[in-house]
């Protein structure tokens, strides 16, 4: 989808600068922004990252917002945050304008996003990266560990 509207300036966004090129992830549940950055692997990059936490929101009461300069995130990348931020929206910014806006969707599988809650799972040792298949995509979500095959409800997810 393409559009020429300006990057949204509402719900407290006046507190952080608009970006010229990059991505804005909005409507992240409060206090989850840092985890979102970690899941997306952005905390280790050199790009300018603006993090806003606990903004007031009409829709969510409180929300976090993340803006990443000079970085394009694919749908597959941003869908990885759907387990922790199911209502998040992603806006791609070019020359201060929103050229694409999308909502995150729950993917079929996620790697390195949630840890297996099973204390006897092989992923708890041996440096094995976690890998889950999402077996129920509607709330409450359910995910099956690729290794120990146990199915966990959303409330059991460990990020």
């Amino acid at each position: 989808m393409t559009a020429t509207v300006k990057e949204p300036q509402k719900e407290g966004s006046y507190k952080v600068d608009a970006i010229k090129e990059g991505v804005v992830i909005d409507h992240i549940p409060p206090k989850k922004a840092l985890k979102v950055l970690e899941i997306l692997g952005l905390a280790e990059l050199d790009n300018v990252v603006i993090v806003g936490m606990n903004f007031s929101s009409k829709k969510m009461k409180m929300k976090d917002v993340v803006k990443i300069e000079k970085r394009v995130l694919t749908k597959d990348e941003t869908d990885k945050i759907s387990l922790i931020a199911p209502s998040a929206s992603v806006s791609v910014i070019k020359d201060f304008k929103v050229v694409e806006k999308r909502h995150v969707e729950v993917p079929d599988e996620v790697k390195k996003v949630i840890q297996c809650p099973n204390p006897n799972c092989i992923t708890q040792s041996n440096g094995v990266k976690s890998y889950f298949h999402i077996v129920k995509k509607t709330s409450p979500l359910q995910a099956r560990c690729h290794y120990c095959e146990k199915i966990f409800d959303e409330k059991e997810f460990l990020f």
Partner: peptide, 23 residues
């Protein structure tokens, strides 16, 4: 003794793995 160990072994191995019990 670990759940899922055989699946991990299968990813490591080019030879077929038969799981004789994982946890």
């Amino acid at each position: 003794p670990r759940d899922g160990a055989a699946r991990l072994a299968a990813e490591a191995s080019s030879k077929p793995i038969i799981n004789a019990g994982d946890g």
